[in-house]
């Protein structure tokens, strides 16, 4: 366990030192600022309320889970694998007395922590902006729902990250991984709209699954099904990704 911890700390430090993480944070803040400006504009321009203090974080979430969050998750995941393959720094990582499984897991955990950190950051700042600039519409229940929605969004993001990791271990070039990932993402999105009755098959539809938790009647069956689909995808993609990573020669 101590070995794994060391590997994890190592991975987090690598991630933290990279500019990409900082850019991601800045972009996330920019989304909040632009969103808030848009709301203020709509309010004074059209006389609409736009979004209340609680709806604003939800609005931000609905935008970021489909745009910058998957984008930066993919970038970070690609960097963590393809980047190190091409810079040959993976060799250094592998020469340490840590099994490949632990290295792989540490990398995935670091990515998951990155996603979680991003979500919390977005949650904090969008709530702050929501309370400062918007009409107060908060109740304890709705605040709890908002926080919960942000937390559960981690799971579909993780599936996405594992998918990108699998791609990163399949293709050599980081750029081609990035483009394939984006094309797949858009393709799945389009398929999800065209074949909405089969939408649960496409991983991108689960990005919005936090909506299920907001429903008054709480559709437990649906939530469990979606959870199991994502869990299954996680196991499948993790195993496939690790298989390729394990076989790789450097």
């Amino acid at each position: 366990m101590a070995v794994f911890q060391a590997a994890l700390v190592n991975e987090i430090e690598k991630l933290y030192k990279k500019k990409k993480a900082l850019v991601a944070v800045l972009l996330a803040l920019a989304v909040i600022v632009i969103g808030q400006l848009a709301i203020v504009g709509v309010r004074s321009g059209f006389g609409l309320r736009g979004a209340g203090s609680v709806e604003f974080p939800m609005l931000v979430l609905s935008v970021v889970v489909n745009t910058i969050l998957p984008l930066f998750t993919a970038l970070v995941a690609i960097d963590s694998f393809s980047g190190e393959f091409s810079q040959n720094s993976m060799r250094i990582t592998l020469t340490r007395p840590v099994s490949r499984f632990k290295i792989f897991t540490a990398k995935i955990t670091a990515i998951a922590l990155f996603i979680l950190a991003m979500l919390f950051l977005l949650l904090f700042f969008s709530m702050l902006a929501g309370f400062i600039f918007n009409t107060n519409s908060a109740t304890w229940v709705s605040v709890f729902q908002t926080v919960f929605s942000y937390i559960v969004s981690l799971l579909p993001m993780l599936v996405l990250a594992l998918g990108v990791v699998l791609l990163a271990n399949t293709f050599k070039n980081g750029i081609s991984v990035f483009f394939v990932a984006i094309l797949l993402f858009i393709g799945l999105k389009v398929l999800g709209v065209l074949f909405s009755q089969y939408s649960s098959l496409f991983m991108t539809t689960q990005l919005d699954w936090y909506n299920l938790f907001l429903i008054n009647s709480f559709p437990l069956g649906k939530i469990i099904r979606q959870f199991l689909i994502m869990l299954g995808s996680c196991i499948m993609l993790f195993t496939a990704g690790f298989y390729l990573f394990d076989k790789k020669e450097f």
């Binding site: 089969y198 649906k222 099904r225 689909i229 299954g232 995808s233 195993t239």
Partner: peptide, 24 residues
């Protein structure tokens, strides 16, 4: 690895089918 991959695939396949079959 084989077991966990199969398990994951089965899990996705069965729940996805159940989800498609269940009428919202």
């Amino acid at each position: 690895m084989l077991v966990s991959f199969t398990l994951g695939t089965l899990l996705v396949a069965t729940t996805a089918l159940a989800d498609i079959a269940s009428k919202s």
